[in-house]
Write a protein that binds this DNA or RNA. Sequence first.
DNA 1: GTTCTTGCAAAAGCTTTGCAGGAAG
DNA 2: CTTCCTGCAAAGCTTTTGCAAGAAC
Lengths: 139, 139
Amino acid sequence: MSHAATRAIDVLRAEGRRVTTARRTIIELLGGTHEHLTAEGIAEDVQRAHPEIHVSTVYRTLESLEAWGLVEHVHRGHGAAFFHLAASHPHVVCEECGRVLDVPAHEFAPLVARVRDVYGFELDIAHNALMGRCRHHDS
Amino acid sequence: MSHAATRAIDVLRAEGRRVTTARRTIIELLGGTHEHLTAEGIAEDVQRAHPEIHVSTVYRTLESLEAWGLVEHVHRGHGAAFFHLAASHPHVVCEECGRVLDVPAHEFAPLVARVRDVYGFELDIAHNALMGRCRHHDS
DNA sequence: GTTCTTGCAAAAGCTTTGCAGGAAG
DNA sequence: CTTCCTGCAAAGCTTTTGCAAGAAC
């Protein structure tokens, strides 16, 4: 089990939350992959080991884990959001092929500072993906 | 009728598209407001003058106008996308109150250049809104 | 008249919710 | 044993689609 997953489960225990099969399995899955999984994708994967776990449970579990700061979701333009263990950084999604690029947060620092100072908005750069075109689909 | 709306309708004619009530009314509405309207909102507005125009027609009309380069849509994180006459620029949406900030494209120029050069993605900064918190809801 | 567009109804895709049974602590 | 979580089914919201009637040119 990945370090991040172990840590997340420890946080659950430390805060007195219940460690259920759904929570443990989803955290382990997210901790062990670099894929950008939708709730549906997470459900499919989780159901290979635990077929009884329902998609609605996956949604509710992700929602709880997110409220407790352990998970984050990212909105793609069209289609389903994807989820990962908390590690706020921006994403760029190719509009053609769906490829997801993880961008280090520091690349956005100047923009964040400028939008704060000039426009009075505190950007949350990780909540929505940016859209774009990767090298192979650059028009 | 706004200049932008007149121009858009001229483009329709010039390209031999049909100028229908739905198209004309939607273009005039978008040309005459700075609000950030959803398809639902556009339908409600349009239906005050033309109650027979159906939401599905609004969606199809917006889709066509967008394919012809006259309209653009922007994805908010949760909830419906909003639409405006073509004028590509980024938006920031307050996660608390939904307020929408229009940002001049040049503010994103350094980021766009850097993401292109370092990561090989050509950003489309207008397609998804960025999320954030405005001054009154900054936590 | 021919072709493109629309209204309506229905469905699709993603996500949320109510409820009663079941598991965690 | 008490509280929280889950399975299931149903509904919610946004958007898309098939089809036949209707409008634009």
